[in-house]
Design a protein around this nucleic acid. Structure first.
Ligand SMILES: [Zn+2]
Ligand SMILES: [Zn+2]
Ligand SMILES: [Zn+2]
Ligand SMILES: [Zn+2]
Lengths: 131, 131
DNA sequence: TTACAAAATGTTATATTATAACAATTTAAC
DNA sequence: GTTAAATTGTTATAATATAACATTTTGTAA
């Protein structure tokens, strides 16, 4: 766990406080008052934060969420549940699932060193609202 | 299995013949000689093809691949292996995996109706080349 | 066979997401 | 202190995707 640089810390703090995933340009808008003015500054910080496992990218949403586990072994094994109604995203921390997927071998002979899994459905709240 | 419209058929044929996933603007470039001139025409066909399960979107690559199974129950349960060296993508068809994931229940009480899984690593060829 | 609705198409403009290229500054290691 | 690596700053541009609106085609049923 290394120290974050100024821009990395500003952007991580914002994402970490957010209850839902944030998009890059929404992050940009929110950190402009702190002196981060250009998309590239945001993307560079995001790249680094993803690389060190402090945040994850939700690929189907082009959005970023703070890691809710212990940096997921540097983002090598990630799983999320995504509510298609309210867009709430939760990181799944389930050892049976991660064991199964980490140990998974397909017949194609590929050697996997990473996976990303996204489940879609309705969250408890949205089910109970019968939406 | 409904019939495809003209644009849908043109674009599906192109994707289906391709050994690797295709990106939207690469598709656009390749079908301009067939009269499809605007991005929106491509995206509309892609949306429809995804909806009916003839193709899948590889989210981490923003690219599209023809379904290699039987339209994956209308794209509700998809898994891919992606070589990070040569970018070869293969659709995984493994009933143990799909059973496990379709039956997966997390403690958060969410009801899942869909998932997408992407494995990353090195394909056989790239391993043997020791890249 | 006409009338209607749904789906698909055509077209222009624009929004959103992401990177290239280059220069300067800060940080960390030796 | 010198150097290399990482980070930052800045402008421009590339790549991905959708909005809005008009028209045409297709399927269905009176
Ligand atoms: Zn995590
Ligand atoms: Zn919800
Ligand atoms: Zn499929
Ligand atoms: Zn390969």
């Amino acid at each position: 766990m290394q120290n974050l640089s100024k821009n990395q810390q500003i952007i991580f703090d914002l994402i970490d406080k957010s209850p839902q995933p944030l998009k890059a340009y929404s992050i940009l808008f929110n950190v402009q008052k702190k002196g981060i003015k250009a998309p590239l500054q945001v993307y560079r910080a995001l790249d680094k934060l993803v690389e060190i496992g402090k945040i994850h990218k939700i690929e189907s949403r082009n959005a970023f969420i703070a890691c809710q586990n212990s940096s997921c072994q540097i983002s090598k094994a990630t799983a999320f549940s995504i509510c298609e109604n309210c867009e709430k995203v939760t990181e799944i921390n389930n050892s049976s699932l991660s064991k199964y997927l980490t140990g998974f071998k397909d017949k194609n002979g590929m050697k996997y060193n990473k996976y990303n899994l996204e489940f879609f459905g309705l969250c408890k709240k949205c089910i109970s609202k019968k939406i």
